[in-house]
Write a protein that binds this DNA or RNA. Structure first.
Length: 425
RNA sequence: GGAGCGGUGGCAGAGCGGACGAAUGCACCGGUCUUGAAAACCGGCGACCGAAAGGUUCGAGGGUUCGAAUCCCUCCCGCUCCGCCA
């Protein structure tokens, strides 16, 4: 959510920033217009309330003096004002609600340094690490959706029987690999991040704070009987840990990490990149998250990117890092980077991490504040990133570590999680 | 799910129709004193909207009233007991 005061005082700046994302100005103009009306009504309403208050005090005083007649007259006057006040309050409230609805749908402003672009094709590649296109053998060029069933470590046919299309099931070493990656992802960040095991089902309010609602309700699973949604990422509950609180500036930055299942309906993407483990309705992910001051945020963002790169690199996988251009940013993003891993069998760069700085966009939705020390309160900044998203890393590992003589090796850094085994299969 | 009790400022906790944005204590921030600190004493101290005047805010939303933290209704949350359960 953008700051309404900013929209009010510099609408042209806001519109120009939104234009970089390809977003039109109609909503901004509408907000400005509604805001002016709302404030005029509120002012009139407040004036009436003030008069009603003074009249009521006089009624009390008059009764005390035994002057019942005059008290009755004042009561009648106050009652009339009250009717008008009620109308004004209702109208102002309704306009206020539409303003909020509009604000919730307007995306965040991109960072000045974020590259301009129309879509994902315009995301600049910042660096490519460990990639040699000719460095892969024929046995590494077999996609994981073939290797998986061959070695009995991926059983999607039965996952579909159990739950439907786009669900996966890992077995034996494949299941161990999925769980090992979760543990590994947490261990890589335990030096600085507090581990959290958050709820997987959250309220509408919680899902609204991060930006999934109201606009992207179709992308999330919801419970029929309760006001609950299945989380699409641990970012959602982590962001709401301090919702509606004023956090102590001395504790910033506050860093959390969590492993969770992530649930996504993937509405509209059926049949796209859905083979094997590429896109599934449920997957595991380790997420890192921080509340920070605006000053702390840029360095934290870079640190999160560096951590993810190191985590992937240590697995012996090739990866590349892209910055997300204005045309490809998520609604809540201020500045964003993706890390993609190379899967030789699939022969694709697979997005395994998205690391983003949200500025105060989510904090305003969630009312998460701190005291900057210059008087008053300010919204915190939020950042988060995938430390390790399991399925695509799983795919890249299985393909990369497939051996010429059969079998799949366990990457060295994952050996501690494999109960003494050195083979995934 | 049923019964009972309860939700008030950062925390604890009074108030239960009329000057209540709300006593008191703790915490916090200034000051006096002190070499410094503690103690003591003095003063300050919620948030939100608004340029200001002013308004909002006692779990949320409705209602009664000239006037609601206080009365009524609905909902949400917590605690205790019962039921069910990994």
């Amino acid at each position: 959510m953008l700051d309404i005061r900013r929209i009010r005082t510099e609408p042209e700046v806001v519109k120009a920033a939104l234009a970089r994302r390809g977003v039109g100005a109609a909503e901004v103009d509408h907000v400005v217009e509604l805001d002016a009306r709302q404030r005029a009504l509120a002012s009139e309403r407040d004036d009436l309330r003030n008069r009603i208050k003074s009249l009521s005090k006089r009624v009390g005083a008059l009764h005390k003096d035994g002057n019942a007649d005059e008290a009755g007259a004042v009561q009648a006057e106050s009652r009339a004002l009250g009717e008008r006040e009620h109308e004004l309050a209702e109208e102002a409230g309704a306009i206020g609600a539409s303003i909020r609805d509009l604000l919730l749908s307007i995306p965040n402003l991109p960072h000045p340094d974020a590259p301009d672009g129309a879509g994902d094709a315009d995301n600049p590649v910042l660096r490519v690490v460990g990639f040699d296109p000719d460095g892969y053998e024929a046995h590494q060029r077999i996609p994981h959706w073939e290797l998986g069933p061959t070695y009995g470590i991926l059983d999607n046919e039965r996952a579909v029987k159990i739950s439907g299309a786009m669900f996966t099931m890992q077995r034996k070493g494949g299941a161990t690999l999925a769980r090992a990656l979760v543990q590994y992802g947490l261990d890589r960040n335990a030096d600085q991040y507090e581990e959290v095991r958050p709820p997987s089902l959250v309220s509408t309010e919680t899902l609204t704070a991060t930006g999934q609602l109201p606009k992207f309700a179709d992308d999330a699973y919801s419970m029929a009987h309760d006001d609950l949604w299945a989380i699409p990422t641990a970012e959602v509950p982590l962001t709401s840990i301090h919702r509606d609180e004023i956090v102590d500036i001395a504790e910033l930055p506050m860093k959390f990490m969590a492993a969770s299942s992530c649930f996504r309906r993937e509405a509209g993407s059926a049949g796209r990149d859905t083979r094997g483990m590429l896109r599934t309705h449920e997957f595991d992910k380790v997420e890192v998250f921080a509340y920070a001051t605006p000053e702390q945020a840029p360095d934290l963002l870079q640190d999160m990117v560096a951590r993810t790169e190191a985590t992937i690199g240590a697995l012996g996988l090739a990866y590349r890092t892209l910055e997300i251009c204005t045309g490809d940013m998520g609604q809540s993003h201020h500045r964003s980077f993706d890390v993609e891993v190379y899967a030789p069998g699939t022969d694709q760069w697979l997005e395994v991490s998205s690391i983003s700085w949200f500025a105060d966009y989510q904090a305003r939705r969630g009312n998460i504040r701190y005291r900057p020390g210059t008087g008053g309160t300010a919204m915190v900044h939020t950042l988060n990133g995938s430390a390790l998203a399991v399925p695509r890393v799983w795919a890249a590992l299985v393909e990369t570590y497939h051996r010429a003589d059969g079998g799949i090796d366990v990457p060295e850094v994952l050996l501690p999680y494999f109960r003494g085994q050195t083979r995934i299969a």
